[in-house]
């Protein structure tokens, strides 16, 4: 399936520092997969390997394989910008283009992909994406206002709409609610629930309740000792991870004994 991602023995480094090592995981299409673990365990780094954002940091490297749609996205003939167009990303801090209009924010990816001329197509995609992100009703009368004029929660939903506009198979969310209030968090979780019919979602979160609420599968990452890279300790259906995990470390973490 198009939204299926498999990593094989994936490792990532920043210069001499090993961030994650030997992560093999199969992410199921049209499901929400949550990655949990204490700070610094490499969750975000793992996420950023999936859309090849990790390599943009000077000195950052990856090894191993990531198979998306039958192709290794790290194969030499694969263009990283193409990968990022098919695998959207939402960041921890809402980062709309502050001076660009709301409509232009949403269509930014389409215009990058060369859809500049097709005005009707762009308008349609803007409306569809904003509706999917549950933002349409709040902004439909001010589409020409700058993206920076929205509230934090609205900005984050604008970023989700921006990621959706290019119709990716997969959406990566790096702690998308950690800078938001509970009401906005609720809205984004509802949006995720709607989206998973058509998209594969991988979410990194610090909030275990959130992982339990929104995800179908959960992966637990952990750095066993300082200086060690983060490893995948356990991965499985969320209901199992949160009720009867196989590993003692997982149980200790989800019951709040550390982290």
């Amino acid at each position: 399936m198009a939204g299926c991602i498999t990593t094989k023995n994936l490792s990532a480094t920043f210069g001499d520092i090993r961030a994650i090592e030997g992560i093999s995981i199969e992410i199921t299409a049209n499901k929400v997969t949550a990655l949990i673990g204490p700070s610094g365990c490499g969750k975000s780094t793992f996420l950023r390997c999936i859309n090849r954002m990790h390599e943009l940091v000077p000195g950052a490297r990856t090894s191993g394989e990531i198979i998306w749609d039958g192709r290794d996205i790290y194969a030499p003939e694969v263009d990283a910008t193409e990968v990022r167009r098919g695998i959207g990303m939402v960041f921890q801090r809402p980062n709309p283009f502050p001076l660009m209009s709301i409509a232009d924010n949403v269509s930014a990816g389409l215009r990058l992909a060369g859809m500049r001329k097709n005005k009707a197509g762009i308008d349609e995609a803007v409306e569809r994406s904003l509706k999917l992100a549950a933002l349409w009703d709040e902004v439909k009368n001010k589409l020409d206002k700058p993206g920076g004029s929205l509230s934090g929660g609205q900005q984050q939903r604008l970023c989700i709409a921006r990621a959706l506009a290019v119709e990716p198979d997969i959406i990566l969310m790096d702690e998308p609610c950690s800078a938001l209030d509970p009401a906005s968090t609720q809205k984004i979780e509802d949006t995720m629930d709607q989206l998973k019919d058509n998209y594969t979602i991988v979410i990194v979160t610090h909030n275990m309740q959130q992982a339990a609420r929104v995800s179908d599968f959960t992966g637990f990452l952990l750095t066993r000792e300082t200086g060690e890279p983060g490893r995948l300790i356990e991965y499985g259906p969320t209901s199992k991870i949160f009720t009867m995990p196989d590993h003692k470390e997982t149980e200790n973490y989800i019951t709040g004994r550390f982290g």
Binding site: N51, M53, L56, T81, E82, V83, R84, R85, G88, M89, F91, R93, N95, P96, F97, P98, L99, M100, A108, G109, L112, A113, C159, R162, A163, V166
Partner: peptide, 25 residues
């Protein structure tokens, strides 16, 4: 860097990233 990542994550090339997020700000 948030702003640059916003463009990069949409598949912007280095020059498009400069044009879309660096130059306007």
């Amino acid at each position: 860097s948030d702003q640059k990542e916003a463009a990069q994550a949409l598949g912007a090339t280095p020059w498009e990233t400069v044009r879309m997020s660096v130059l306007p700000l």
